[in-house]
Amino acid sequence: MKTSFWRQLGLLARRSVVRTFRDPGSVAPAMLVPLILFVLVSAGLEKATHVKGFPTDTIWTFTLTIAFANGAMVTVANTGQAVATDIEGGFINRLALTPMRSFALIVSQLAGPLVLGVIQAVVFLGVGLAAGARFEAGPLGAVVLVLIFLSAVLAFGAFGIFVGLRTGSGQAVQSIAPLMTVFLFLSSVNWPRNLITADWFYWVATINPLSYLVEAMRSLLITGWDKEAIGFGLAFTGGVLVIMLFASAWQLHGRLVRT
């Protein structure tokens, strides 16, 4: 009997969703860590809005993107760990012995993080709005921010899949995942780029593509409809997603040496 690509995708996606929500190690950090960061940084920097040139007078409006950006990055560990576990436990061999198509396996791994991402977005938005964050772009801006966030979830999820397939080790994934937070903090996530006075850090933040993801989301909160910023953000996540999906397919091909 033959199975269509979409049926395979559906079955494996269902598995990804079930696994994600049965693993407390996936859900709790994805919800709590971004929120804790958001609350602590916002409270600590409240008076930063008094700095001349600061783009908003409500710190929560500025810092809400911290929760979203960090929340998206947690996906690297989630998808990477899921793939590594399948490799370490031999489950990938079981799948390889079925008529499963490799690409269905890769894409399906994003289903769990995507569903989790929707829940994350609702919670982050709820907490952010309750704390005092406001959208210059209005309610539709909030929807677009969620869409950019979900595109980031997919992009980082695909990166996690690539790392998982490349290393085949959960330990390796867990040691790489925190580096993502390092990259995030080396972007303009904590401070507007135009107000960064340290030249070296301005340079680092400018070449760090995560700055553009953060600025795309932040523009909807602070500036309104900044097509250029949104475009850069989506180009970054879209580019990473496509590159990582193909890189993962290549990695999986090497790992599944079935004849």
Binding site: A48, V182, F185, L186, N190, W191, I196, T197, W200, F201
Partner: peptide
């Protein structure tokens, strides 16, 4: 070390307060 580098680099203009 990482927090030091990130905070020091990004937030030094806070001294203008």
């Amino acid at each position: 070390l990482f927090f030091f580098i990130a905070f020091n680099g990004a937030l030094s203009s806070l001294t203008n307060l």
